[in-house]
Computed example of a mutant assay.
Amino acid sequence: MPDRPVRGAAEPPGFELPLLLFAGFRSLIDQLHAELAVRGHPDLRPAYGFAMQAIGVRGATATEIGRRLGVSKQAAGKTVDRLEALGYVERVDDPGDGRCKLIRLTPRGLDSLARAAEVFDELRARWVERLGADGVARLESSLRTVVPDAGFPVDVPGWFG
């Protein structure tokens, strides 16, 4: 961590904002995965959650998954291979294109996403306990104001890659 420049107490250095946002994100994701392990999904990793979001409830091809994640088709394929070995996804013939395989979530994959949604609700409730309902609502509203309105990205694996 770089030395902190001398500033007034009311004006923190600019580099703290992205680090605090990332630390908050990381804290939530770490707590999510610890809880998912207890709830029957000990092998899930953050990248797998992004991949399952990229697959979605309708399924997707490896090319689509790679594009959504911001990684190559080969990298997406490796993640899909691991998710398939763990029982979270399956490959089926694509009814729209016989040359392609469609990757779909299995009941185990859908269960993991449902449990993750439950855990996120519980984690948000913990933040409400600590910050108050108004504080969390203000935080969410403020972030919606400054974050581009392009939906929620799942391309974090490619962005950090």
Rank of each mutant, 00 (worst) to 15 (best):
D43F: 07
D81W: 02
E84W: 06
T61F: 08
E16N: 05
A37M: 12
H33N: 14
L105M: 13
D149T: 09
K101Y: 09
P95Q: 01
G14K: 11
C100M: 07
E64A: 12
G87K: 02
P42R: 10
V119F: 02
A60F: 05
V89M: 07
H41N: 08
P95F: 06
D121M: 01
R144Q: 11
A133D: 15
M52D: 10
G14D: 15
A47P: 00
Q31C: 06
F152G: 14
A47T: 14
T106I: 02
K73F: 11
K101C: 09
D134I: 04
G98L: 11
R39G: 12
R144N: 12
K101E: 15
V128T: 14
L32Y: 02
T63I: 12
L44P: 01
G135H: 05
G98W: 03
K73W: 04
D81T: 07
G135M: 05
P42N: 09
F22G: 06
P95H: 01
D134M: 08
R67D: 13
V38F: 06
A60L: 08
H33G: 06
P46T: 09
E140W: 07
L32M: 12
R91H: 09
G77F: 04
G87W: 00
G109L: 04
S112Y: 00
E16H: 03
P12N: 05
I29A: 07
V146G: 05
R26H: 10
F22N: 08
R99Y: 06
T63A: 15
V71M: 09
G109E: 03
A51G: 07
L28D: 14
D93I: 00
G135P: 00
L86T: 05
R82A: 13
G87R: 06
R124N: 02
G56I: 11
F120W: 05
A54R: 04
F50Q: 04
L143N: 08
A51Y: 03
L86H: 07
L131K: 09
E35Y: 04
F50P: 01
L123Y: 10
G96F: 07
I29F: 08
G98E: 13
V92L: 14
P148A: 12
V92H: 06
A150E: 15
P18M: 04
L123W: 04
E16Q: 14
V57E: 15
R99L: 15
L36W: 13
L32C: 10
A37G: 15
L131T: 00
Q74H: 06
V128I: 15
A116N: 02
K78Y: 12
L20Y: 14
V80H: 02
T61V: 02
V136D: 05
A60C: 08
R39F: 07
L44F: 06
